[in-house]
């Protein structure tokens, strides 16, 4: 009798805590980049980015499988995976960080809010501390999260050989666009 009461109490506590945490997520985030250096367009898009935002703590995490980036040219996609990011060895890129000004954002009120994000970005086996700015648009219980930032290839030990140096930029401009919905626990 006492045992079951305790268990019930624990369970209720668990549910209550989970409910209190307002988490938002998507599994279909759009992540694209542009690394055009010459005449040839070097662009790719991935529509399977995972993003989770904890509005209570401001924790923000993103992950994307590099193999899921689609290029217009098949050979470019092949080279991206095989020669540059080595997706067989390092299958995904990841960001784990926090929204610095999280406490100032009224998540329950519709509107657009500028955010500063700080955290660790991991790519090609290298993790680096990064900061970026972005925008959160709260609209009827959904959050649209967008950001753009540059990734310098040399920072992540991605080498561009001499013969293609004039075709590929030394960095990729990454765009992130995630439509987050609340996560039911």
């Amino acid at each position: 009798m006492k045992y079951s009461t305790l268990m019930l109490f624990c369970c209720l506590m668990g549910i209550a805590q989970a409910k209190a945490q307002e988490k938002f997520f998507t599994k279909q985030g759009t992540i694209s980049f542009d690394a055009t250096g010459g005449l040839e367009k070097i662009q790719a898009t991935n529509h399977a980015g995972i993003c989770v935002l904890d509005t209570k703590t401001g924790a923000l995490q993103l992950a994307v499988l590099l193999k899921g980036f689609e290029f217009e040219k098949a050979l470019m996609q092949e080279h991206f995976n095989e020669n540059y990011v080595e997706s067989e060895k390092y299958p995904r890129a990841e960001f784990k960080g926090v929204i610095v000004n999280n406490s100032n954002i009224p998540y329950t009120k519709n509107g657009a809010y500028d955010v500063q994000v700080k955290g660790t970005f991991s790519l090609h086996g290298v993790s680096k501390e990064v900061t970026s700015i972005g925008k959160l648009v709260v609209q009827d219980g959904r959050i649209q999260a967008t950001s753009a930032f540059d990734v310098l290839f040399s920072d992540y030990h991605i080498s561009i050989p001499g013969v293609v140096k004039d075709k590929i930029a030394d960095h990729a401009t990454v765009h992130i666009d995630c439509s987050l919905q609340s996560l039911k626990m």
Binding site: M13, Q17, Q21, D54, K56, T57, A59, Q61, M185
Partner: peptide, 19 residues
């Protein structure tokens, strides 16, 4: 459970929840 919850609040792996 209580310890688990407090760790949960600091949240190390959010991605694991939806992956």
């Amino acid at each position: 459970l209580a310890i688990g919850h407090s760790l949960h609040a600091q949240q190390q792996d959010l991605l694991g929840l939806v992956e």
